[in-house]
Structure formats: structure tokens, C-alpha cells
């Protein structure tokens, strides 16, 4: 049986957005449970950290350039630079380093 590409896309759109909406409709108040609150406090940082490394080294042509971007990005963020400057610095590090690597 030949399936329709449009139906695939429609199912993908529906499923992905329903996952996003469910918690926001079910949980409207403050969660009281201390463990769950603590858990949710750590979730954003842990999940972003897991997604950043080692993926940053796989995103670039040269893994070394990705690693350098990570280290210089961490230093820049440590000294208080915001999202956009850190992001631009990381891109520049990769762009410049890949001339040499």
C-alpha cells in the first residue's frame, strides 16, 4: 500500500505538538513535592549539557575545532558574556581554526 507523504507529515506535526502541550495543560499550579521540584530545577541544565557535549565536536568538520569552541565558549560565558556574543565567538573559533586544521 502506498502511503501519503502529507499524512506522514500531519501525523508528525500532531504527535510532536501534543507531547509539548500535555504537561502544560495538566500541570497548572506549583508542584509541592520537594524531590520533584529539585528534579525540575536540574533538568534544564543537565539536558542542555548532555546535548552539548560531545555533540559540539561532531557538528564541526574537525572535532578539535568543536572542542576549542566549547572551551572558549565556557570561558566567555564564565566572564559574563550573553547568549549572542558567546554564540558568535564559538562560530568564529571554528571558522578560523578550520583554516589551519
Amino acid at each position: 500500500m502506498q502511503h501519503s507523504t502529507w499524512i506522514y507529515i500531519l501525523l508528525m506535526i500532531l504527535t510532536t505538538n501534543i507531547i509539548r502541550i500535555i504537561p502544560l495543560t495538566l500541570i497548572r499550579g506549583q508542584i509541592k513535592n520537594r524531590f520533584f521540584r529539585s528534579f525540575l530545577y536540574y533538568v534544564p541544565y543537565v539536558t542542555l549539557a548532555v546535548m552539548t557535549f560531545p555533540a559540539i565536536m561532531e557538528a564541526t568538520n574537525s572535532p578539535a575545532a568543536g572542542a576549542a569552541a566549547l572551551m572558549i565558549g565556557i570561558i566567555a560565558a564564565w566572564f559574563g558574556l550573553g547568549l549572542f556574543p558567546v554564540s558568535v565567538i564559538c562560530c568564529m573559533v571554528v571558522f578560523v581554526l578550520e583554516f589551519f586544521i
Binding site: T52, G73, S87, V88, C90, F95, E98
Partner: peptide, 19 residues
Amino acid sequence: RAVSALSVALYGMFIAIII
């Protein structure tokens, strides 16, 4: 090379959020 450099933009932001 441009794609390679641009693709770390996302990670740069993640770093700026978690540090």
C-alpha cells in the same frame, strides 16, 4: 566550512545558558 561554523551557534548558546 560555513555550515560547519554556523552549526556550533546552537551549542554556543547552550554554553551561555548553563555556565
